[in-house]
Design a protein around this nucleic acid. Sequence first.
DNA 1: ATTATCCATTAACAAAAGATAAGAAGGCTA
DNA 2: TAGCCTTCTTATCTTTTGTTAATGGATAAT
Lengths: 193, 193
Amino acid sequence: MHSTLLSFISRYVQLTSKEEERVIDTFSFREVPEKYKIVELGSISKELYFIKKGCGRLFYLKEGVEITGFLFTENMFIGSFESFLTGTPSNQIIEMEEASSLYVLSKENLEMLYTEIPKINVFVRKMLEERMIIAQQLVGSFVLNKPEERYEAMLRANPDLLNRFPQHILATFLGITPVSLSRIRQRIIKKEQ
Amino acid sequence: MHSTLLSFISRYVQLTSKEEERVIDTFSFREVPEKYKIVELGSISKELYFIKKGCGRLFYLKEGVEITGFLFTENMFIGSFESFLTGTPSNQIIEMEEASSLYVLSKENLEMLYTEIPKINVFVRKMLEERMIIAQQLVGSFVLNKPEERYEAMLRANPDLLNRFPQHILATFLGITPVSLSRIRQRIIKKEQ
DNA sequence: ATTATCCATTAACAAAAGATAAGAAGGCTA
DNA sequence: TAGCCTTCTTATCTTTTGTTAATGGATAAT
């Protein structure tokens, strides 16, 4: 039942069965309904979550409107990393958009894992290396491409996101307003004819 | 003489004198003139660099024009992480803007360090955690703020960058053209009067 | 069945950014 | 000193986005 989490970890490091058991023990399982906020604005986040099933988003509140910062789907760790790592109140809100199944890792248990199974440091390092590359590519897409190109790139690279998140969420993730994304879509339709 | 590098590492993990010696042995020292490219377009980067003195930038080439992706100054690791980590040809160019002193770490030597001093995994993990937060804040600034606000934030948070990099480099880092940044500066001057 | 709510589209206007070109200031070289 | 190059500014015009508001469709609630 923990196969998704363990096979995710095995992509980075090889654990013994004993270590795998230990890892499983340190995670708890949690099911949340759609639109459930796992990190509230201003709270100090003391947990990270591995998405077994479902999807969620990280967003900010700017003058009352929700601005998406990142989107998460199955087999990703989700959380307010800044709040989790620095222990400061979160300016990010994390909300699961679909009813989701999560493996929950508390900060305490993570620290325990680091000392008990040093290999976990290697796992997290490698995972962060991957995430770093993704983050850098994302920054690159903002300086290199205009919104229309970013949307087309998303169509090509992550078409699944289009089905799982409403358009206004995708729009702010692209750095534009929902109205502007609607116009972009019309332009693309006319280009294709 | 290696005090900058060692004191940087000591911010994350504590090494014994023996380990410190070992670390120093695995880095080599290199001085490069201004405008020197330490990573060329299309090359496979097999080194990372710690900036002892100087500054540099990561940029892309889009239809012949240089688009800045990130700026680096003293006490930061600089390199084409994607090419270094994945072994693929770099679509990023890394150029030192000032004449610089660098500590050079080869991929081979880094792998050696990981096995010889497992603590280095902890060091890199923690450094990546910090960089991850910075990257996330940078993405946040693109979805949350317009160019004018991003420039004002840079004025507040990193005023040193304004002196060390020409304006057209800062402009593309903000995701706009040099012409547009010049207009933004004029708008700000008029606001302040 | 009929409200109510949410979401995407469309329109109209204002604001900002891109593209292109021309000019001014500073530094570097011959 | 003269010429060249780089950088920044300014102007003009075009394109795109933001803002606001109205509309229609879909879905859920009463």
